Computed example of a mutant assay.
Amino acid sequence: MLNIIICDDEKVLRSDLKRILEAELGLMGVSYRITEYGSGEEMLTEYPNIPGQKILYLDIKLDNINGIDTARRIRRLDASAVIIFVTVYPEFVFQGYEVRALDYILKPYEKEKIIRSLQNALSVLDLTKESCFFLDHRKGSQRIPFDTIQYFFSRQHKVYIVTTEGTQSFYGKLGDLEGSLPSCFVRIHNRYFINLKYLDSLEKNCAIVGNTALPVSRSYKQSLSIAYARYMLE
């Protein structure tokens, strides 16, 4: 799961930024969690316990520990996090090179600039290719957000995609999907891949996904349990 961190001492501006990010990520089908902090100290205290890939939106002018110093400390903990500065002082953005900041956003926020910086950040983290499944048909290609897909299953030379909106299908083999799906999808049977996001419970020989009981093969039971436990921790 992608973790987005917003660190700004102005609550209203945090909320504005969060609202824009949530709307765009929802359209892209990216699985995410957004955490807000009002100070660099608070964020640094909790940062080591935040798992997964991260995008940080840091206000440069914070009380006590400013955004630049906060970013320096983050870099000692995490070399791969994407850092984006937010500021009303454009003259300070050049200091961002020191901490390998990807971008900066000037206040007040412009929606287009936020979306563009988010897309760049996702590209750096290599998440954009995982956000959607592309279903080809006669009329062209349809984009189905992975975040809406509950499970895939195969039957008689066709693969079915069960989403929160309905079911679609295409001719193919389920095995061809292996290796191209996000890590939240796991195989539970020769004929089923499920999205752990929609796994409600594990029974003796089945998985309850979206109120549907799906068979779990003995050979996949242990790997499913481990994957589900890891997913819950993230």
Score class of each variant (00 low, 15 high):
Ala23Glu: 14
Met43Glu: 01
Lys107Val: 00
Asp176Thr: 14
Gly166Gln: 01
Asp69Lys: 14
Gly40Val: 09
Ala229Asn: 09
Gly40Lys: 09
Leu25Gln: 01
Phe133Gln: 06
Val86Ala: 07
Asp16Asn: 15
Ile65Trp: 12
Arg187Gly: 14
Leu2Trp: 00
Lys113Thr: 08
Gly179Val: 12
Cys132Gln: 03
Ile65Gln: 06
Leu196Asp: 03
Val93His: 02
Lys61Asn: 06
Ile208Arg: 08
Arg14Trp: 07
Tyr37Asn: 07
Ser117Asn: 05
Ser169Arg: 13
Arg187Asn: 12
Cys206Trp: 06
Tyr104Trp: 11
Glu110Ser: 04
Lys204Cys: 15
Ser141Glu: 09
Leu127Ser: 06
Leu199His: 04
Lys11Thr: 09
Leu199Pro: 01
Phe170His: 14
Pro108Ile: 08
Tyr228Cys: 09
Phe152Gly: 06
Pro182Ala: 13
Ala121Gln: 06
Gly172Thr: 06
Leu77Tyr: 13
Ser31Ile: 05
Glu203Ala: 12
Phe193Trp: 07
Asn64Gln: 09
Thr70Asp: 15
Leu196Thr: 00
Val82Met: 06
Ser180Gly: 08
Lys173Asp: 11
Thr163Ile: 14
Gln168Ala: 09
Tyr231Pro: 05
His157Lys: 15
Gln119His: 14
Ile50Ser: 03
Glu10Val: 02
Tyr171Met: 11
Leu106Lys: 09
Leu25Lys: 02
Pro182Ile: 15
Gly38Arg: 08
Arg143His: 08
Gln142Trp: 04
Ser180Ile: 10
Ser31Met: 05
Arg230Leu: 14
Leu25Asp: 02
Asn211Ser: 10
Gln168Lys: 11
Leu177Ala: 00
Pro145Gly: 10
Tyr47Asp: 07
Asp147Asn: 03
Asp63Ile: 01
Ile188Leu: 08
Thr70Trp: 15
Thr35Lys: 03
Asp9Cys: 00
Asp78Arg: 08
Pro215Lys: 02
Ala101Leu: 06
Phe193His: 03
Glu203His: 07
Glu234Val: 10
Ala81Ser: 09
Ala71Gly: 10
Arg155Gln: 08
Ala79Cys: 07
Leu62Ile: 12
Ile208Asp: 13
Phe170Val: 02
Tyr198Arg: 03
Tyr109Cys: 00
Thr148Asn: 03
Glu112Tyr: 10
Tyr97His: 11
Tyr171Asn: 09
Gln222Tyr: 15
Glu10Gln: 15
Arg116Tyr: 15
Arg191Cys: 10
Ile5Phe: 03
Glu22Tyr: 08
Asp200Pro: 00
Glu110Cys: 00
Ala101Trp: 07
Ser123Trp: 03
Asp136Thr: 15
Tyr192Leu: 13
Ile83Pro: 02
Arg33Val: 06
Lys107Glu: 01
Gly67Lys: 11
Ala71Pro: 09
Ser80Trp: 02
Leu21Glu: 12
Glu36Ser: 13
Glu46His: 13
Phe152Leu: 08
Leu202Tyr: 10
Glu98Asn: 07
Gly175Pro: 03
Tyr192Thr: 14
Arg143Pro: 05
Glu22Asp: 14
Ile161Arg: 01
Ser154Arg: 10
Val209Pro: 04
Lys204Asn: 12
Asp63Lys: 08
Cys132Ser: 03
Ile6His: 01
Phe153Gly: 01
Arg14Asp: 00
Leu58Pro: 04
Glu234Gln: 12
Val99Asn: 11
